[in-house]
Simulated scan of single mutants.
Amino acid sequence: MEPLRKGEHEGFRDFVNALDSRYEIPDTTILKKKLLPEYYENVKQKLVTALSKAEHVSVTTDLWTSIANEGILSVTCHFFHNEKLIAPLLEVVKMEGSHNAENIASMLDATLSKWDIRSKCEAITTDNAQTMINAAAKLHIRHIPCFAHTLNLTMSTLASDKLRAIQRELNKPELKVIQEVPTR
């Protein structure tokens, strides 16, 4: 999870040289223009082959606003391959325009079609946002609400109610729970 230019740093080069003086760290340009694209294409072809053999898939998707105030949509696919459940991330894309059900459905449809799994998609799991529920309905794909999201909402509500009750009982000012996400 280091930047590609890490290989340009003298200390890192010395470290690698100490490990194996015969190894040459690839140039950043070669990494970006040749090695990573080749690796990506290799992995993508394996995924395309595995997806072509899958009878059924389901997807999870989420839409959020980045710190740069851009809509970001992710799509992860879930299916069995060689009797093993795998879950590759298919897309993380910037969502232009309104975050309404029509646009979300359109982007999901494009992703499912791009990977040739549209007809195999049995279910879409999302948070409980009405736009996500409506997007799944527009695609005529069964919507499954995310259990963890539902549980988190339920527990947050119960915990906040309990906190308020204790504060009232102790005649303390009612404070709110500090959320770990600035948008909540």
Rank of each mutant, 00 (worst) to 15 (best):
P37L: 03
K53G: 14
L85K: 04
H81K: 06
N17Q: 13
D62P: 01
S66C: 11
E102I: 05
A87V: 02
N103K: 06
A87Q: 07
P88A: 00
K84Y: 06
K44R: 13
D20S: 14
S21M: 08
K44W: 02
A18I: 06
V43A: 12
P37I: 07
I104G: 03
K94W: 00
K44N: 09
F79D: 01
T61Q: 03
E38A: 14
N100W: 10
K84M: 07
E55K: 13
A18H: 12
Y23I: 06
R22I: 12
C77V: 07
Q45Y: 09
T76I: 03
L31D: 03
G71L: 04
E70C: 13
C77H: 02
F80C: 05
H81S: 07
D20V: 10
T49Y: 15
S58F: 04
V43Q: 12
T65Y: 10
L31I: 06
S66W: 05
N103H: 06
D20Q: 12
V43M: 13
I72N: 04
N42Q: 14
K53L: 13
K32S: 13
E96T: 14
V93H: 06
T76V: 01
H99L: 01
D27A: 12
D27Q: 10
E55M: 09
T49H: 15
K84P: 03
T28V: 15
S74V: 00
I86R: 04
S58N: 03
F15M: 13
L51P: 04
L73P: 04
E70F: 15
T60K: 01
Y39I: 09
N103R: 07
G71R: 00
H56M: 10
K32V: 12
A54T: 01
E83C: 09
L19F: 10
I67N: 11
V92Y: 05
S106Y: 00
D27T: 12
N82G: 07
L51V: 11
C77Q: 01
E96P: 03
G97Q: 03
